Computed example of a mutant assay.
Amino acid sequence: MKTKNLLSLLAIAGLMIFASCKKDDPSPLTKEEAQTAITTVDGSYNTIKAEYDATTGVLVQETIYNLTLPFDAPKKAPARLESIQKDLTRTIKPAFAKGGSDEFIYFNFPQWVGTWAYNTSTLEWEKISPTPTDQVVIKFSYNGGTNNGTLTYYDYQTKTANGQAYISQLKAKVDIDGQASNPVMSWVYTASKGLTNGSVTFVYNIGAFTQTESYSADIAISNTTSKMNYSLSFEVKKNGAVIYSTSANISMSGTQSTYTATINAQLRVLDIIIKWDIDVDNTTNTENPNNFMKISVWKTNGAKVADVVLVYNAELQDYEPYFKFLDGTTVKASEYLHDLLYEIEDFMGSIMGFVQA
């Protein structure tokens, strides 16, 4: 009897725990709640994007890019929110693991240490001081000559892989005279390389914003098969809170006659997350993306906002995204999203570059 009573109590406790967990699961949003959530995040995104693009740390990049330096220094810049993922398929590619990606930094740092400035009489860059001996310091004019700026490369470190040295760490910062807070922008680059793998991470600080980009690849190739795993992420935080992020994990494998690809990707804006689940192989009809791709929208607390269905527009000869709400009704995404819709479509177009027929 004691054993039966104990088992009964355990069963009741288990049911109570299960019921409690189910009760805590957030309910899907109604159509009205979903519409409010989507339009709210679209408006907030536009406000934050304008603030981000107006920071001195972002604006100064145009001046830095136009510096005609006598050496090829890395002029890495934080991506503006309207162009974050445009070169995704160029960045993550098989050559990446062997060091062929543009994301790896190449810079003969020891050759150019010291302080450099532009001579307006000779119209040439000159090394005005051999110090500091462990930094590359570039003096430049900013804002039409109103302010002086300093671009500094420092904390240079190297490692060796496959018999060749590569930069495993490099830091840079930009200071502008007259600013209330300096540096106006800084970044830290770290990288690792192997024979069949590699990774790169950039961390930018721009005022109240922190931006992190990371890429990694792992490739295995034999006489009969090839397997490639890619991972990438991009995240922008303001005062420690995530305001925008994208990520994708991509697994591909193939033989001479077969091909498979699985992609799990997300795009987050504030408390809204859009998820892509893609499964494709060499037999998939990729003309219709609904055959191999599922898209859904969620709140960060786990509540489902809507599904996304792609409807073919014969006039545009392309598929357009529609939100499918809890009550089954569908509404074109462009009725709720504006600038943010371009970001979503760009990101989706980038990951679609990995889908092969």
Rank of each mutant, 00 (worst) to 15 (best):
residue 272 I to Q: 03
residue 273 I to E: 10
residue 273 I to H: 04
residue 273 I to R: 10
residue 275 K to E: 11
residue 276 W to I: 06
residue 277 D to P: 09
residue 277 D to Y: 04
residue 277 D to R: 08
residue 278 I to A: 00
residue 278 I to W: 02
residue 278 I to P: 03
residue 278 I to E: 01
residue 278 I to S: 00
residue 280 V to C: 04
residue 281 D to P: 03
residue 282 N to P: 00
residue 282 N to Q: 03
residue 282 N to F: 02
residue 283 T to S: 07
residue 283 T to V: 07
residue 284 T to E: 01
residue 284 T to R: 00
residue 284 T to K: 05
residue 286 T to V: 10
residue 286 T to D: 01
residue 287 E to K: 05
residue 288 N to C: 00
residue 289 P to R: 09
residue 289 P to I: 03
residue 290 N to I: 00
residue 290 N to E: 14
residue 291 N to A: 04
residue 293 M to Q: 13
residue 293 M to S: 08
residue 294 K to Q: 12
residue 294 K to V: 11
residue 295 I to Y: 15
residue 295 I to C: 12
residue 296 S to C: 10
residue 297 V to D: 09
residue 297 V to M: 13
residue 298 W to V: 12
residue 298 W to A: 11
residue 298 W to C: 08
residue 298 W to Y: 15
residue 299 K to M: 14
residue 300 T to Y: 07
residue 300 T to V: 08
residue 303 A to M: 04
residue 304 K to L: 11
residue 304 K to S: 14
residue 304 K to Y: 10
residue 304 K to M: 15
residue 305 V to Y: 00
residue 306 A to L: 05
residue 306 A to Y: 05
residue 308 V to C: 08
residue 310 L to C: 01
residue 311 V to S: 10
residue 311 V to L: 07
residue 312 Y to L: 02
residue 313 N to M: 10
residue 313 N to K: 10
residue 314 A to E: 08
residue 314 A to M: 06
residue 314 A to Y: 01
residue 315 E to P: 07
residue 315 E to S: 14
residue 316 L to T: 13
residue 317 Q to L: 04
residue 317 Q to T: 12
residue 318 D to R: 08
residue 319 Y to E: 09
residue 319 Y to T: 01
residue 320 E to S: 15
residue 320 E to L: 12
residue 320 E to F: 14
residue 321 P to Q: 05
residue 321 P to A: 02
residue 321 P to K: 02
residue 322 Y to M: 04
residue 322 Y to A: 11
residue 322 Y to N: 02
residue 323 F to E: 01
residue 323 F to K: 00
residue 323 F to H: 10
residue 323 F to W: 01
residue 324 K to I: 02
residue 324 K to H: 06
residue 325 F to V: 09
residue 325 F to Q: 05
residue 327 D to S: 11
residue 327 D to C: 07
residue 328 G to Q: 10
residue 329 T to W: 07
residue 329 T to L: 02
residue 329 T to M: 01
residue 329 T to K: 14
residue 330 T to N: 11
residue 330 T to Q: 10
residue 330 T to I: 12
residue 331 V to G: 04
residue 331 V to C: 13
residue 331 V to E: 15
residue 332 K to T: 11
residue 332 K to G: 14
residue 332 K to C: 01
residue 333 A to K: 05
residue 333 A to S: 14
residue 333 A to M: 09
residue 333 A to I: 12
residue 334 S to M: 06
residue 335 E to W: 13
